[in-house]
Amino acid sequence: MMSDVKPRIRLPRSAKAGQAAEVKTLVSHVMETGLRKDADGNTIPRMIINRFTCEYGGEMVIDMALEGAISANPYVEFDIMVSDATDVVFTWYEDGGAVYTETQQLSVG
């Protein structure tokens, strides 16, 4: 598990039911590709966020599979279809099984 994994999320200040709302997410992570070598010539093992999901009101918004070709500090932008639900759950899955979850409230007005 990496010690410095920190999610940052931007939801719209307010959203209207029936409309799309743009979500921006970024999680601090080195995304070590497994292709690099250290100073001694040993391959540095792969350690990436390999999956990211966003659920809204208990339904899947987006389920993303990530490879080593995703940049460090993975940034993902997408849209939620706003209903009357407020809970937005973001989950990042790391190689080795660590899981990072963040829940935020969408203000539906």
Partner: peptide, 10 residues
Amino acid sequence: AVFKFGPAAG
């Protein structure tokens, strides 16, 4: 990457 869009995708 692969993006799968769910029922709550806008």
